[in-house]
Write a protein that binds this DNA or RNA. Structure first.
Lengths: 119, 119
DNA sequence: TTAACATATGAGCATATGTTCAGATGTTAT
DNA sequence: ATAACATCTGAACATATGCTCATATGTTAA
């Protein structure tokens, strides 16, 4: 087990204790993957704008295309991605779908992100 | 100006008022871009693990390769990306570089992200 | 049921991204 | 100065991603 750690390091393992600790506390592949997937979803200018618009009010797809100035198809594709990540939800009223944020996490993530970016 | 908004919508603009408001409050292209870039940087399993390891303690590059089980070259490339985004910093001690988190934003972003992912 | 509208979806294409490989750079010890 | 080590970097390649275009789906009104 410790050998395994050392074997992985092809040169010299400088701080075995730190490495052992870090490995013990490390996120599972699955969790790290989900987290990365979430951030990757937020990592696109179109989706950032889209989410930001929805942060203030609900909008139908047509509205969104007007707000962010993209084709309806592009917006629809992006909305699907956001839906899959459970970042947005929608309600239907007739043939119109109204999208809104699914929870408050996005707002908090944006806050933190903006703090980092603008400092 | 209002015409511009309406022109962009090739079908029917359903909620002109909402669209106008949303456009007024919208992030600038630049800010949205920076924000997206930040999240994109967090949107990779390797980098998530790397940052998570550094969240608890500083590590040298060799340690990191051992912790996350990737080649030294891959780790080095990723560290550069994180450096460029000012997410990590390093101090040199002899030939060894010790990396650590640049600020506390990552930790908060991870918190929020994990909450979303695990709920 | 048919036409019109709002939205969704699949395929295709161009670009972006992550890893590997080979070699470069910078630091310390000899 | 030279060798050894820790880390970095550029090029190359395979995969992932975002947009567009054409078409499909679902809803309402006629």
């Amino acid at each position: 087990m410790e050998r395994e750690i050392i074997d992985r390091c092809d040169t010299t393992c400088i701080h075995e204790e730190a490495v052992r600790e870090a490995r013990k506390q490390m996120l599972s592949d699955e969790t790290a993957g989900f987290l990365a997937e979430l951030f990757r979803t937020l990592g696109d200018t179109t989706r950032v704008k889209l989410l930001f618009a929805l942060m203030q009010r609900e909008l139908c797809v047509c509205d969104v295309t007007a707000v962010i100035g993209m084709s309806e198809s592009a917006v629809s594709h992006q909305l699907r991605i956001l839906r899959n990540q459970r970042l947005v939800r929608y309600r239907r009223q007739g043939k119109i779908l109204y999208y809104s944020l699914a929870d408050s996490h996005v707002a908090r993530l944006f806050e933190q992100g903006l703090e980092h970016v603008t400092e």
